[in-house]
């Protein structure tokens, strides 16, 4: 009974998310057992394909905790990828230097947005929407055609490194031993996830994010510098997004204007599905992690089916998002009534 009381509305949302993922994955295993859905590698592929998204979602969660939103992430990723691709192919720059530059660009980008949101008190949505169009336009300014990366040996090597897992090996139907592997972006993303989780839980900055999102007025009265906290949140989001952009670029090995369109939607829906409240103050990155996994599972299911149009995965994610938004608002109403 005591443990039941501990499960309030917010943890319930997280539990629903985890249950949903497990059910969805098991359903996939049952329906597509002949198409290799049961292998460990399928799961790892979801991680590989969504490593960038995971980084972005961690940043998005931090911004959403303050009650804001950042929809510029998709274009920022496109800009990062294009910058890296053009930098390697046309300007012959060192990939490592480029990656550092991308992080700096992300930080500056986030600082401008955070300044507008925190200090000028403009609605986050408007600011980041301008950022979204700026990023997409800037991508086209850098280069309008698709650029694929192949000339830098170092970059290709990083992108193609397979980190093999010591367990879960199996022989496929041709009798070849398959060792499950992950790629470097997955490691980066998981490290980011753990760092952000610890930061949110144990650092002063992490706790102040919750405080600002929970009630801005109380945060001010507590003596927190709300504007500065918001600024930092947006910088964090854009930097994490740039890390995501690097992961994304390592995965696709190309840059194009249309890259990562609608990624902001995936990130927001992952965070919301993971139990982060849109009003701020509630949520954590573990939920977001499962949100990303659900997102990845849906698109993998659609792809495995082969007959469905790819827009179905968009619709399914939007429907899920809608479901969770309604669930959240119903919980909020119940809470208000019980007061």
């Amino acid at each position: 009974m005591k443990s039941l009381k501990k499960i309030n509305g917010n943890t319930l949302l997280l539990l629903i998310t985890i249950a949903l993922f497990v059910v969805m994955y098991i359903a996939g295993c049952v329906v597509y057992s002949t198409k290799g859905f049961t292998h460990l590698q399928t799961f790892l592929n979801i991680l590989i394909n969504n490593a960038g998204l995971l980084c972005v979602t961690c940043g998005m969660t931090c911004v959403m905790l303050t009650g804001g939103i950042d929809i510029s992430v998709g274009s920022l990723i496109a800009m990062d990828c294009m910058f890296i691709a053009v930098g390697i192919e046309k300007w012959n720059m060192n990939p490592i230097l480029l990656m550092v530059l991308v992080l700096v660009i992300g930080a500056v980008f986030g600082m401008v947005q955070g300044f507008c949101v925190g200090y000028l008190k403009i609605q986050p949505f408007i600011v980041t929407m301008a950022g979204m169009f700026f990023g997409r336009g800037m991508t086209a300014v850098i280069c309008t055609e698709q650029v694929s990366v192949s000339s830098s040996e170092l970059f290709v090597k990083i992108a193609q490194t397979k980190i093999e897992l010591p367990f879960g090996a199996y022989t496929n139907n041709k009798g070849v031993l398959q060792v499950p592997y992950v790629r470097i972006p997955v490691v980066i993303a998981l490290v980011v996830l753990i760092i952000v989780f610890l930061m949110l839980k144990y650092t002063k900055f992490g706790r102040s994010l919750y405080a600002v999102g929970g009630s801005e007025q109380s945060a001010v009265m507590m003596g927190l510098d709300v504007a500065k906290t918001k600024l930092k949140a947006y910088v964090l989001s854009s930097v994490l997004c740039s890390i995501g952009g690097i992961c994304f670029c390592l995965n696709t090995m190309s840059g194009s204007v249309q890259q990562a369109t609608g990624l902001e939607m995936d990130a927001i829906s992952s965070a919301v599905i993971g139990g982060t409240l849109l009003t701020g103050g509630v949520g954590n990155v573990i939920g977001s992690f499962f949100g990303v996994l659900i997102n990845g599972t849906i698109s993998t299911l659609v792809k495995t089916n082969g007959k469905l149009l790819s827009s179905w995965s968009n619709i399914a994610v939007a429907a899920l998002l809608c479901f969770f938004i309604i669930l959240q608002s119903v919980f909020a109403k119940i809470k208000e009534k019980s007061k």
């Binding site: 507008c116 000028l120 403009i122 408007i126 600011v127 929407m129 301008a130 950022g131 979204m132 169009f133 700026f134 997409r136 336009g137 800037m138 991508t139 086209a140 300014v141 309008t144 204007v257």
Partner: peptide, 17 residues
């Protein structure tokens, strides 16, 4: 067409600011 959003975004931010 693809580059035009850059200028529009700057105009939006200035007006809103």
């Amino acid at each position: 067409t693809e580059q035009a959003p850059v200028y529009k975004a700057i105009i939006v931010i200035i007006i809103v600011a």
